[in-house]
Amino acid sequence: MSFDLIIPIIITLVGASTPILIAALGELVAEKSGVLNLGVEGMMLIGAVVAVAVMLTTGNHYLAIICAAGASACSALIFGFLTLSLSANQVATGLALTILGTGFSALFGQPYTGQAVPLLRSPFAPELAQHEVLRIFFGYSPLVYFSLIMVVAVWWFLQRTRWGLILRAVGESDHSAHSIGYSVLGVRYLAVAFGGAMAGIAGSCFPFILTPQWVERLTSGRGWIALALVVFAAWKPFRLLAGAYLFGLIATMELYAKAAGGNFRILPSELWAALPYLATILVLVLISMRRQGSTSAPACLGRPFVPSN
C-alpha cells in the first residue's frame, strides 16, 4: 500500500460510513427524546426496498429517497403508537419492527431483484467529481453531503433551538417537562418519526451508493452497527460523525489491507469484525468512569411515559 491510496480509501470509507451515519443520526434524536427504537435494521430494509421500487418505477432518485423516508417513518409510527400511546415495551416492539421490516422488504422486493438500479452520482461537473485530488471534496453522492448537513442540523437543533431544548428535556426528565406543559408524547412521536425517516434514507444509500441492486437482507446488519454508533458517540452529533468514519475506516482498511496482500493482516479478521462492538463497550465504560458512574445516556431512555396527573 502506498500514499496514493489515501484518497481512494477516503472515498470508499465515506461511502461505507454514510448509511450508518444517517441512520444513527435519526436514532440519536429518537433516543435523546427518551425512546430506544431497536428497529433500525428493519426500517432501513423498508427504506431500501421502497427506494428501489420507486426508482425503477419512476426513474427519479429524489422521489425515491423521499418515498423511502416516508415509508420508514410510517413503520416508525407503528412503533410509536405502541410504545408511546399504548406504553408498550420498547425493546420488544423494536425487535418486532425489525422482524416486520425484514419480512415486508423480502416480500415486497421480490419483483425488483435481478434489476440494476442507477447510482445516485456526484452532482458536480466531471472535472471536479472525477478529478484526481478534488474528488475528495466533490466526488460523492448527494446523500453524502446530505448526511454532513444533517450532522450540523441535528447539532444545531438540539443545542441551539428552543425545540431542541424541549426535546432534550423530555428525554432527561419527562415528568418535569410534562408538568411545565410540554406534550411529552407529541415530542416523542416527532422524534421517532424523524428517526424512521432517516433510517429510510439510510436504507436508500445501499442501492444508490454502495451496491446498485435490491436483494433480500441487503443491509446485512448495518442497522445494529448504527445503534452501537449512537452509544459510541455518547449521543453527540459531531462525535457521531467521527465515530461513523472511524467505524468505516476500520471496515475499509481491513479490505484494503487484504487487497494489498502480503503480511498486512495484523489481527485475525474476526477481531477486526468484532472491533466496533468492543470499542463501543469500552467507550461506554470510559464515559462512565470519567463521570463517576453516570453515563451520558438520556435519563428516560427506554422508559415509557405515563403522566401521573
Partner: peptide, 27 residues
C-alpha cells in the same frame, strides 16, 4: 459487571456482545 460497577446500560452491552460471540464462533 459493567452494569453494577460502571452503571453501563445492559441493553446495549448485551446486544454488542452478541456480535462479538458470532465472531468468536467463526474464529
Amino acid at each position: 459487571f459493567l452494569k453494577v460497577r460502571y452503571k453501563v446500560n445492559e441493553i446495549l452491552t448485551t446486544l454488542m456482545l452478541t456480535y462479538v460471540a458470532v465472531q468468536l464462533l467463526n474464529y
